[in-house]
Design a binder for these strands. Structure first.
Length: 198
DNA sequence: CAAGTGATTAGC
DNA sequence: CTAATCACTTGC
């Protein structure tokens, strides 16, 4: 069953980032087959007050516009000339927070994911934000997509106790000054699909 | 470890 | 208009 809109409207984006661990991210292919993976790593981006966020200081551009919309939609952006990143927008209108999905563990339709990733070994399939978008077929056409729709959504799958969850600093935000060390990254402890820190 | 890649942004 | 940047990945 798809996650309710209420889930994405909780006040605390950090709590949402934490509770997304164990949820299933589902992106059907064009032919009615489910392709999915369990979320094992996330990062919270806390809007205007977070120097690492695209919406820092109230920055509002064509790219990050959906961050300013209602929670429960996809924020997909393109970076480094090659990769897409999939985020979930949280909170009410005009509170531009989002949670980046950094890694998933493949669950349904491994064959298709492997083919899309060029036949790499299993562990490399979805262990990073750009990799999982390739494996799931996520691109810019899903930016702004409602997560209650038919193109991409989240489902309850597993629950992890606090003792199985780790937190630490976010990856690839060296420009974020005093926000570099905020422990706003969450992952399933010792899960082998969690991305490598750089 | 460094190149690759091009959309996006800020600054003029 | 132009130049710099970038919430990354891969292959050397």
């Amino acid at each position: 069953m798809k996650l309710s809109t209420r889930f994405f409207l909780r006040q605390d984006t950090l709590l949402i980032a934490r509770s997304l661990l164990g949820k299933l991210l589902v992106v059907p292919d064009g032919e009615g087959n489910r392709v999915s993976g369990m979320i094992v790593e996330t990062e919270a981006y806390l809007g205007p007050n977070d120097r690492a966020a695209h919406s820092f200081g109230g920055r509002r551009t064509t790219r990050n516009e959906v961050m300013y919309g209602i929670g429960g939609r996809a924020y997909v952006f393109f970076v480094y000339g090659m990769y897409y990143q999939f985020n979930v927008v949280t909170g009410p209108v005009d509170r531009p927070h989002a949670v980046l999905i950094r890694a998933i563990e493949p669950v349904e339709n491994l064959e298709l994911m492997t083919a899309r990733r060029g036949g790499l070994k299993q562990q490399a399939l979805t262990s990073g934000p750009g990799k999982l978008c390739i494996a799931l077929g996520i691109d810019r056409s899903m930016n702004g997509e409602d997560l209650r729709g038919e193109r991409v959504w989240l489902e309850q799958y597993k629950t992890f106790r606090e003792s199985h969850v780790s937190t630490g600093k976010r990856v690839g935000i060296d420009y974020a000054q005093d926000y570099i060390d905020k422990p706003w990254r969450f992952w399933v402890t010792s899960n082998k699909f969690v991305s490598k820190s750089r």
